[in-house]
Design a protein around this nucleic acid. Structure first.
Lengths: 204, 204
DNA sequence: AACAATACCGAACAACTGTTAGATTTTGAC
DNA sequence: GTCAAAATCTAACAGTTGTTCGGTATTGTT
């Protein structure tokens, strides 16, 4: 049984409350804009008083930081899991499809895009750390593209990093128009993107 | 000499200040996040007192509305101009390239994406109108794709509306990673997108 | 020059924000 | 049960927000 926290051994009550705070803050962050999430709203949703939050976090920014950190971390895990599931011996393009699909699912399910966008508006000191985390995340996709290139699966004459950013941008923006009750599933969309990405849409 | 305003005939002083307010509000909207744009900041930038704003606008939301309206309108104009410049007899794909390029340039130059994003957070009554405007805007690109399909320039078996949204999403997201001092120009990026979009990146 | 409509000022408002600090309760070890 | 530590409450703070309103300056018309 793995223990939490580094210093102490037990799972204190504070640990639980802290976790609950991050949880509800994440939910509020998803449902409303990042700006409408006030400490008082977070406190109310966590059934606690506003002032008590400062026993767990030094400032509001620290809460945002924790939320973002957990977000990028979880997305990364799910994407890596999807890649692993596709098998290390599968084609890099198959794994890329799996990775993009996992990324899209996470984005849609957790309204993650709004969180990514919020990064730009963070105080500079918090921003740098998350930009780095984001770069690491993007590196997963870049790696797959690169591998595909090395194995001679790709055409030449295009900029892989630009293609990667265009593709991830396309998926990130899906959250803005996706209709959960529509006909398309996240996997359908990922398939469509992968199809365009590999074969294009023009004839001959 | 064309007159402004519907009711009266003259260009009053109020018309000028109103225009100036929208102008500076737009600029502030670009430079900072949409949230940090307070009525007092807008007023200060327009060299006016905060209270005086309410002689021209009923509320802060109305200012946002005016800014957004002008934004979508201008983007639409520039995209249509780019299409016209390509020539009505040119290939739909050439015109699509021109349209995407114009869209990207406008997005980057006016930080238009943050404005698009802001739409989602508007009060419902204001939002509907702009969502409609946005749909009309997207229709331009959908039309070009459709025309290309009719002329037999495209493969079959893909969903044009999904492809359009993916492509526009990719461009919209460019604002999040674009480096003005980098090597790539907006036209380079538009070319790259168009290349992927038509030919894909996979071999054979 | 006089007058009324127009445009703006300036101070106040209530509501909200993040944050602090002392009092109070809850918890867990003995 | 006792008692200190941990966790939460309560009330207030200083600042900012959007907005209102009575007064004042500016404007254009006669």
């Amino acid at each position: 049984m793995a223990r939490q926290k580094s210093g102490k051994d037990r799972i204190t009550k504070a640990d639980k409350t802290r976790a609950r705070l991050i949880e509800v803050a994440t939910r509020l962050f998803q449902e409303h804009g990042s700006d409408e999430v006030t400490v008082r709203r977070i406190a109310a949703a966590a059934k606690i008083e506003a002032g008590s939050i400062y026993y767990h976090f030094a400032s509001r920014d620290q809460i945002l930081r924790a939320v973002l950190e957990r977000g990028v971390g979880n997305a990364r895990e799910e994407v890596l899991a999807a890649i692993a599931e596709a098998g290390a011996d599968s084609s890099p393009l198959v794994r890329l499809r799996a990775a993009l699909g996992a990324h899209l699912k996470y984005t849609l399910h957790h309204h993650f895009s709004s969180r990514l966008k919020a990064i730009r508006r963070l105080p500079k000191r918090l921003r740098d750390h998350h930009m780095q985390q984001e770069r690491d995340y993007a590196e997963i996709f870049a790696g797959l593209l690169e591998e595909a290139g090395r194995k001679g699966l790709l055409q030449s004459g295009f900029d892989p990093s630009v293609v990667r950013m265009l593709a991830m941008g396309a998926l990130t923006w899906v959250a803005e128009w996706y209709d959960p009750e529509g006909a398309m599933t996240p996997d359908d969309i990922a398939d469509e993107l992968m199809r365009v990405l590999t074969k294009g849409i023009a004839k001959s």
